[in-house]
């Protein structure tokens, strides 16, 4: 209960509660002794924190050191300037096109069963032999190669970790 009150009071002191909430807390401070006492205690602590925490100071030569380091470096052009948005859009368009083509082909292939009345039935599609590509043997070999590669990668990572640690 007290913790809840303290939390609400801190929100009020920090000015991060909404207006309705602020009005409600202000009223509680005015009318309830416990709230008023806690508020006085917290506001004093807050003032100490805001006014008494000291900043650390670096050495006297700090600015000079920074300016010397800065003198030999150059300001990089803004990221937006060297990343052409058309290239990003081009890449996005390429992937969307590929996905759309694969998706369209899949739908067309599944709809091309010779049924009459289908909108796509009149169209002829090239036979890409995708079903042959994903035959049982192919999938098994593919998965096996991936497992071996994953094991090699894990081994490399663990070995590197042991060397650095």
């Amino acid at each position: 209960m007290e913790q809840e009150m303290e939390m609400q009071l801190w929100e009020y002191i920090d000015g991060i509660c909404n207006e309705t909430e602020a009005q409600r807390i202000a009223l509680l401070i005015k009318e309830e002794v416990a709230w008023a006492e806690k508020y006085t205690e917290l506001i004093a602590f807050n003032a100490e924190l805001a006014g008494s925490l000291e900043l650390e100071q670096p050495s006297m030569r700090f600015t000079k050191n920074v300016m010397e380091a800065v003198a030999v470096s150059h300001i990089a052009p803004a990221t937006k300037k060297y990343i052409n948005p058309f290239i990003i859009r081009g890449i996005a368009a390429f992937f969307i096109l590929i996905i759309a083509a694969v998706f369209g082909y899949a739908i067309a292939s599944s709809g091309n069963t010779g049924k009459t009345g289908s909108l796509l039935s009149g169209l002829k599609y090239p036979n890409l032999g995708i079903s042959d590509l994903f035959s049982g043997t192919f999938v098994k070999v593919f998965v096996m190669v991936n497992i071996v590669l994953a094991l090699m990668l894990a081994d490399g990572v663990l070995r590197r970790k042991r060397q650095t640690g």
Partner: peptide, 28 residues
């Protein structure tokens, strides 16, 4: 920086690094 490393020399080096980085990427 002191709050991270609690060592004056290291904190000063890091602070310097921060200002150099900020300078280099100021256009951003």
């Amino acid at each position: 920086a002191m709050r991270y490393v609690n060592n004056r020399e290291v904190a000063e080096e890091l602070a310097q690094d921060v200002f150099v980085k900020a300078y280099r990427f100021l256009a951003d």
